[in-house]
C-alpha cells in the first residue's frame, strides 16, 4: 500500500504540491491525471524519495526513505533511465545484483514480452528512445516490486509494447501490487483504473472510484469536466 498524508512540496514560495492525501491500496490501480504543470511528476518524485517534502509517505507501512520501503518500490521515470555504456542484459544483471534478487527468469520473460531478447547485447546508447523506455520499464519491474509507480510510461512505446504494458498493469494488480500511473493518455488507462485522482494547480481537484463513476461518462469526459469545467452538452 502506498499512503500519502499531508504532502506539501514547495519550490521557494511556489507550492508544487499542496497538502495532498491519498492511498493506493494493495491490488489497486490508481491513476494520476492532470494538465501539464499540475504537479503530478513532483508528487511521484516525492513518493519515490527523490525529493524532500513536508508530510508523510509510507510504502507498506515503512517510511518511503527507509531501506525497507526502497526494497518494495519500482519506479519508471518520465525519461528513460538507461546507462549508455551497459548492455541490455547488463542492466538487468545490475538491478538484480543491486536489489539482491536471484530470480532472473522473470526479467527474461519481460525481455521477451517487450521484444528485447535480440537486443540483449546492445548498449544503452545504441537503443532507440522507445527501446530505452522498454528497458527502463524492465529494470523497474525486474526485482518484482510490490508498489510500482509509472510516470508517463507509454511515451515512445510501440503498439505491441503498449499492449503488453497494459497487461502488466492488470497482472500487477491481480498479484496484489499497488500501482500508481501518471499519464496524459486517458484512453490508455480507461479499461482498468480503480481510482482516478485529478490534479490541478498542485492539489487534488477530484478523486473518483471506477464503480462510483456515472457509467455514461468516460474518464476523458470526467477529466475535462473537472479541469476545464466543460461537458459535451
Amino acid at each position: 500500500m502506498i499512503s500519502i498524508q499531508g504532502v506539501t512540496k514547495k519550490y521557494g514560495k511556489f507550492k508544487a504540491n499542496d497538502d495532498i492525501d491519498f492511498t493506493v491500496e494493495d491490488g489497486q490501480i490508481a491513476v494520476l491525471l492532470g494538465p501539464n504543470g499540475a504537479g503530478k511528476s513532483t508528487l511521484i518524485k516525492c513518493i519515490t524519495g527523490l525529493l524532500r517534502f513536508e508530510g508523510l509517505i509510507e510504502i507498506d507501512g515503512h517510511n518511503n526513505k527507509s531501506i525497507e520501503a526502497k526494497k518494495l518500490l519500482g519506479y519508471i521515470p518520465e525519461m528513460p533511465a538507461v546507462y549508455d555504456m551497459l548492455t541490455v542484459s547488463e542492466h538487468i544483471e545490475f538491478i538484480l545484483r543491486a536489489y539482491k534478487c536471484d530470480d532472473r527468469d522473470y526479467a527474461e520473460k519481460l525481455l521477451e514480452r517487450f521484444e528485447m531478447t535480440d537486443k540483449k547485447d546492445k548498449l544503452g546508447k545504441e537503443l532507440s528512445k522507445g527501446m530505452q523506455q522498454k528497458l527502463s520499464i524492465i529494470c523497474a519491474l525486474a526485482h518484482k516490486p510490490k508498489c510500482v509507480i509509472f510516470d508517463e510510461p507509454m511515451v515512445g512505446l510501440d503498439p505491441h509494447a503498449i499492449k503488453e504494458l497494459k497487461e502488466i498493469f492488470v497482472e500487477l494488480r491481480n498479484n496484489g501490487a499497488s500501482v500508481l500511473i501518471s499519464t496524459h493518455m486517458l484512453d490508455s488507462v480507461e479499461d482498468y483504473w480503480d481510482v482516478a485522482n485529478i490534479m490541478v494547480n498542485g492539489t487534488f481537484a477530484a478523486t473518483k472510484t471506477n464503480d462510483s463513476l456515472d457509467s455514461s461518462k468516460s474518464l476523458e469526459e470526467m477529466f475535462f469536466e473537472i479541469t476545464e469545467g466543460k461537458t459535451d452538452e
Binding site: T48, G49, L50, L73, Y75, A98
Partner: peptide, 11 residues
C-alpha cells in the same frame, strides 16, 4: 543523474 543510485535499498 539517474534514479537508480537513490532507489537502490542500501544506506
Amino acid at each position: 543523474l539517474l534514479p537508480y543510485v537513490y532507489l537502490i535499498p542500501e544506506k
